[in-house]
């Protein structure tokens, strides 16, 4: 197995799927001549050509809308939104069109669309370019929401997303692109809708995903030195949500901390916590704790921004509070 960065893993998945299936094509801002704002599609334009790597105007609604329309004709577009913050300009098409058409027309419309986008804070981009609004998208039945935390999962889940016949929102994290990990070569698929245990443990369950998986793993390493073995469940897919590994782990540890980068109110942690209480109340030994972003628009100043985003210390402290 090769050790690849997240960027390389995503790029490889896209490349292989485009080689495999001529119905797969990319559209978005700066995906072609520029090579992708985050360099994920570097080299694609020269290899696959302008027809299959389509630069668009700055028109998010048209990018997603045209992606939907093309998908309805049987193609498999990968529509890229430069960042998830720009998804709000395409919200109508994501929510009112992509998530609804299959149901609303009684099953006759099928749209195998992938919306690739990037979220997350921590890069001093200010309040409008630093958000982690994943939970908003996970709210809508009909939409699939995937957010990988490792290079291998990024490759396997993106391939699964491209092959899925449902609209999939594929949320990458801007500060994970340089993260390295073992990535299986060739046709490697990770099924959508399956949470997984990324680190076994017996004392406490940490439920997390995406960038916060990286921080949770670091926190678990430090806790291990103090004799606390944390089990980490990575959600990987936010909708449809697979609670089975979470509940199984919680029944063993009886304690849980939910870690997400987005805001706490109405967030992923709120959902997971409620589900634990609903589905495993008899196993609760301590109140479930949530670690999440402070309830402010993210500031530009580096120190202020960092203090608003969860860090390893926050996770360790939360774990100690539930032990």
């Amino acid at each position: 197995m090769a050790r690849l960065t997240m960027r390389e893993a995503i790029s490889q998945a896209l490349w292989e799927e485009m080689e495999r299936d001529p119905k797969v094509f990319i559209l978005g801002e700066e995906v072609g001549v520029w090579g992708g704002t985050y360099a994920v599609t570097k080299g694609f334009y020269d290899h696959f050509g302008a027809e299959r790597v389509r630069d668009t105007p700055i028109s998010e609604a048209a990018i997603i809308g045209a992606g939907i329309g093309a998908a309805l004709t049987g193609l498999r577009p990968v529509a890229e939104l430069m960042t998830i913050n720009f998804a709000f300009s395409a919200m109508d098409h994501i929510v009112n069109e992509s998530a609804k058409l299959h149901y609303m027309f009684g099953g006759q419309m099928v749209l195998p669309l992938v919306i690739r986008t990037v979220g997350g804070g921590g890069r001093q981009l200010g309040a409008t370019h630093s958000q982690t609004p994943d939970a908003i998208f996970a709210h809508f039945p009909g939409l699939v929401v995937v957010a990988p935390g490792t290079p291998a999962d990024a490759k396997g889940l993106l391939k699964a997303a491209i092959r899925s016949n449902d609209p999939v929102m594929f949320i990458e994290h801007a500060t994970l692109y340089q993260t390295r990990g073992e990535v299986p070569e060739g046709d490697f698929i990770v099924p959508i809708g399956k949470s997984t245990v990324q680190r076994p443990g017996k004392d406490v369950t940490i439920v997390t995903y995406s960038k916060m998986l990286e921080l949770s793993l670091k926190a678990a390493d430090q806790l291990a030195k103090e004799g606390v073995e944390a089990e980490i469940v990575d959600l990987r897919t936010l909708r449809p949500l697979d609670m089975a590994p979470v509940i199984e782990s919680f029944k063993k540890t009886n304690r849980a901390v939910i870690v997400e980068e987005g805001w706490k109110s109405y967030g992923v942690g709120s959902e997971i916590t409620a589900r634990i209480y609903e589905e495993a109340f008899d196993y609760v030994d301590a109140p479930v704790k949530r670690v999440a972003q402070k309830e402010v628009p993210l500031p530009y100043n580096r120190t202020l921004e960092q203090s608003a985003i969860p860090n390893v210390e926050d996770i360790i402290q939360a774990v100690k509070e539930v032990l």
Binding site: G65, L72, T73, P77, D92
Partner: peptide, 12 residues
């Protein structure tokens, strides 16, 4: 909202 979809159908 269906105008961008129409562009996509035509793109297909």
């Amino acid at each position: 909202a269906h105008l961008p979809l129409a562009a996509g159908l035509a793109l297909g």
